[in-house]
Amino acid sequence: MEIIEHFLYTKEHEWVSIEDNTGTVGITDYAQQALGDITYVELPGVDKDVEQFEQLLSVESVKSASDIFSPVSGKVIEVNEDLVDDPSILNRYCYDKGWIVRIEISDADETSNLLTADEYRNYLASLDRNDNGESLEE
């Protein structure tokens, strides 16, 4: 499971990479694997205002539709139009060519609510443990 060291993460498996005041947002390798082959990305409109952890957009696979939440508050300033024509980019290059939106961050302090790469790695490990321990009723 690939994790990029200098990115920040959410427990919903989004990543954000921050440069100056702009956050580039995408979904993690774990998320794209869990979703399976992505068939559609419903991009938000440019200029959309979002709050941290509010629903930002949704992605579809054949048998599921999943909401993607914004890791930061701010205004959407750019969306990755390439995903409209070829959503498989999200599966193949989730951390670079598969970026989804860029957001002009309105509250830099909120990044303290996000996980570092190490914290996210530990979080995934804990999920894995729970998953193995889970069993069917009865």
């Binding site: 082959d37 068939t39 559609y40 579809e60 696979s61 054949v62 959503p87 498989s88």
Partner: peptide, 10 residues
């Protein structure tokens, strides 16, 4: 047998 549903949706 086993149609490619991803291709259909894309």
């Amino acid at each position: 047998s086993r149609p490619d549903e991803v291709k259909a949706a894309r």
